[in-house]
């Protein structure tokens, strides 16, 4: 689809705003609608758009599958890690009140970190699934047929 100028230009114009919107949804989740889940899917959607227009090969250059697979686990670990930090600070597991001296601040930190972990896991899982599905000899198969 790279040779279609309309698709190429539109996806290039849209790519940055989609990511920016995803980050807004991610870090503005305390104040407006949204949060880690939503932000994760939006950011993954931007990369999927890129992969669909500029081929999977180029997408794999931008987001190497090994990195994406590692981020899946890292996101979940961030979430769990926040709980462990609260635990070490003397509170219950995932009790954000113990993350900072002021409990309201602790809640803010906890929620932002936890949402970040969720966003990371969701975005990388969806991206990883897309790459696995699309790379399922899908492109090879099409090329082979054309030959």
């Amino acid at each position: 689809m790279k040779n279609n100028p309309v698709l190429r230009v539109c996806s290039k114009v849209l790519f940055a705003p989609i990511i920016l919107y995803g980050l807004y949804v991610q870090f503005h989740g305390d104040y407006g609608p949204g949060g880690g889940f939503q932000a994760g899917v939006i950011i993954a959607a931007a990369f999927i758009l890129y992969g669909m227009i500029f081929s999977l090969k180029n997408l794999k250059k931008v987001t190497p599958p090994s990195v994406v697979h590692a981020l899946m686990g890292i996101g979940a670990l961030i979430y769990g890690g926040v709980g462990v930090v609260a635990f070490l600070n003397g509170g219950e597991y995932l009790n954000y009140n113990y993350l900072a001296a002021d409990y309201a601040k602790g809640q803010h930190w906890g929620i932002i970190l936890v949402e970040f972990g969720v966003g990371l896991t969701v975005a990388s899982t969806i991206l990883g699934l897309f790459m696995a599905f699309a790379g399922f000899e899908f492109s090879d198969y099409k090329q082979r047929k054309r030959r």
Partner: peptide
């Protein structure tokens, strides 16, 4: 935190 959905979900 104005968005209660986030508070309930994350905290």
């Amino acid at each position: 935190i104005p968005n209660v959905v986030t508070t309930v979900l994350a905290s």
